[in-house]
């Protein structure tokens, strides 16, 4: 237990020191990575714990982003209040998707989520009165840093980063509690053997729908966090390919691991950045397609498990929660 505390303390310390040491552009990228880690967490909950492949979570992230921008621009909400609002909106959307998903499983559900992800753009374009159609919607309201952080863009950048880290930390703790708690264990039992779980009294429908809602809500929070820095939502940023990149990042991090989402978020932002910095300029699809193939072929349990395996061997971190899917069950 002390090992975990040391690790958490180091992580919190590093997170708090980062805004002082890092120059503004790097901090911006780091803030985006924090938001993306939350988005990947949403995919992880669905793909790993529920065992339902989620190929359309970009739509939930996009809904969260649009909710934030619409509330801020049209209804003059402070941005801080739009974050929980995005969570609520996406939770509701998740429930709506979750109900039909009760009857669909495996590859069928995978392709339904793929289709839902692809329909996000057309729906946004259609709802022009709300979303400003194909041009994207922006808000002029910026969240200015409190005075103790100083003034100017640099202070704002630090503030946005700190907010993102704080919200992400909260979401991660809640998600961890969810997965090790009653619902989480029930859902994993359903994943591994639905009949046995139901026979043992797990209320399948309620738990599955609840998990859908939570997963979508988390993705919505990620969308809101993305909008803190630059409150401009464009449907082109949340298209099918984004959903697939999210799924790739979740797989790379390790599908049924909470920590894996951090790795996934870092890779999602870091790999394209790295490729641009190295002057290779690979297309995002090439990067995530390639790494996804390698990950599935070499590390069926996720690349994140390689890291966490190493950490566990040092004895710093006890294994937490249900393990990742390694193989076995089909559909």
């Amino acid at each position: 237990m002390t090992g975990t505390r040391v690790l958490v303390a180091v992580a919190v310390g590093a997170a708090l020191v980062a805004p002082i040491l890092l120059p503004s552009p790097s901090l911006r990228i780091l803030t985006t990575a924090v938001a993306m880690a939350v988005a990947v967490l949403g995919v992880n909950l669905m793909g790993g714990y529920l065992g339902r492949v989620a190929l359309g979570h970009g739509a939930f992230v996009g809904s969260g982003a649009y909710t934030t921008v619409i509330l801020s621009a049209d209804h003059h909400w402070p941005i801080v209040a739009t974050i929980p609002a995005s969570a609520v909106v996406c939770f509701a959307l998740g429930l709506v998707v979750g109900v039909p998903a009760l009857r669909i499983k495996g590859l069928h559900l995978a392709l339904v989520t793929l289709a839902l992800g692809a329909s996000f753009g057309p729906i946004v374009k259609r709802l022009e009165f709300l979303t400003n159609g194909p041009n994207g919607k922006g808000s002029t309201a910026a969240w200015v840093a409190p005075t103790w952080l100083g003034e100017g863009r640099r202070a704002d950048g630090r503030w946005w980063y700190l907010v993102a880290v704080a919200v992400a930390a909260l979401v991660f703790v809640l998600a961890r509690n969810l997965t090790v708690g009653r619902v989480g264990r029930g859902v994993v039992a359903l994943r591994d053997g639905e009949l046995a779980a139901v026979a043992n009294g797990v209320p399948a429908s309620r738990y599955i729908i609840a998990m859908f809602g939570c997963s979508a809500a988390i993705a919505g929070v990620a969308g809101a966090l993305l909008m803190i820095q630059n409150p401009f939502a464009a449907h082109t940023n949340f298209e099918s390919s984004f959903s697939l990149h999210l799924y790739a990042a979740a797989t790379l991090g390790g599908l049924a691991t909470i920590n894996g989402a951090v790795v996934g978020g870092a890779l999602l932002v870091g790999l394209p950045y790295l490729s641009a910095r190295l002057g290779i300029n690979l297309n995002d699809n090439v990067i995530f397609g390639g790494t996804l193939i390698v990950a599935v072929a070499l590390f069926p349990a996720g690349v994140g498990t390689v890291f966490s395996g190493l950490v566990r061997r040092t004895g710093l971190l006890p294994s937490s929660g249900p393990g990742p899917i390694v193989g076995g069950h089909h559909q």
Binding site: G51, V53, L107, A248, G289, G290, V296, G327, G328, H330
Partner: peptide, 14 residues
């Protein structure tokens, strides 16, 4: 498992 099938084929597709 489904995740491997989806992962590999989506990877190739991307």
């Amino acid at each position: 498992p489904v995740t491997a099938v989806v992962g590999a084929t989506i990877g190739v597709s991307l």
